[in-house]
Each structure stands twice: as C-alpha cells, then as structure tokens.
Design a protein around this nucleic acid. Structure first.
Length: 139
DNA sequence: GCCAACGTTGGC
DNA sequence: GCCAACGTTGGC
C-alpha cells in the first residue's frame, strides 16, 4: 500500500468542515499556488488528508479522502490550475491546534510548520501517525 | 536572468 | 490590525 498523506487548509468562514460534511463531497478548487498545485497533481484517489482550519480555529479538525484526482479547475479561466474532490471521513475526536503541532519536536519538519503559507502540503506517514495520536484517534 | 518592490497569506 | 514569510512581477 503506497498511500500518501496530505494536509489541506481552508478558512472556515469560506469553507469549513461542517460545509464539507453537509455537501458530502466537496470540490477543492481555487488553489493558485504552484507548489500546492503540484501536490494536488500527485494525489491519488483514496489518499487521506488532514482538514485544517486556518485563521479561525487554527487547528486540524478532520480526516478527508481524495475522491477524484486532479482535473482542470473550472474556476480558473486560464485552465492552468487543478482541483480535486474530497469526501469527509471522520471528525477528529480532539482537534489538534497548530500550537500543539509546533510544540511537538516530531512534527517540526511538517510542511505546515515550515511553509506556513502553503495551502496543500505533504504529511509523512510518521507525522500522520503522530497527529492521529494527538487527536485521540487510532491509526 | 537577477533582484528590488509589491501583494497576499496566515499566525498572532 | 500588524507583521513576517513567501511568491510574483517588472525594470534593467
């Protein structure tokens, strides 16, 4: 199994975890950053990702699954950037705030910590396991 | 092709 | 609301 793990940021007043749950499947569009777009192109159907609330809350709130691999973002007039589709898997028992992630030396290398402005980052399997532990979830 | 100026994102 | 970090743009 070569599953990959990701972290996707959203501002909850624009698109929150509850919005995604209400929709059942959400389109992750509007990404206009090449590094983030590259990560999205690397995603495979079935990959898991952390849903993270930026600005308000500033914490990891849930687990999502990639349900459709990268396709041209319909909101991009130039047709250069991509979007993916995601489905909610489960809400974390205990949301993991950025503060706690920063305080954990095992997570110091996360894209989230090192590249705070990147909206779609990679998560290493051992980092994934650590965050899940902090969230009170079984891996 | 380099680099300064500017705009945007995101944490606090 | 402020500021730091980073990406992008544009002059040379």
């Amino acid at each position: 199994m070569s599953e990959q793990y990701w972290l996707m940021k959203s501002e909850p007043d624009v698109y929150s975890w509850d919005d995604l749950v209400a929709e059942k499947e959400g389109m992750w569009d509007g990404v206009r950053n090449h590094a983030a777009a590259l990560n999205m192109k690397t995603m495979k159907k079935g990959d898991l990702a952390i849903f993270y609330h930026s600005n308000i809350g500033v914490e990891a709130v849930g687990i999502i699954k990639i349900s459709k691999e990268a396709f041209i973002d319909p909101t991009d007039e130039k047709g250069k950037f991509v979007a993916v589709k995601v489905k909610p898997v489960k809400k974390l028992k205990n949301p993991v705030p950025l503060k706690a992630i920063k305080a954990n030396p095992k997570l110091a290398e996360m894209d989230l910590v090192r590249l705070s402005r990147l909206s779609v980052g990679k998560v290493r399997p051992e980092e994934w396991a650590e965050v899940m532990k902090m969230a009170g979830e079984k891996v």
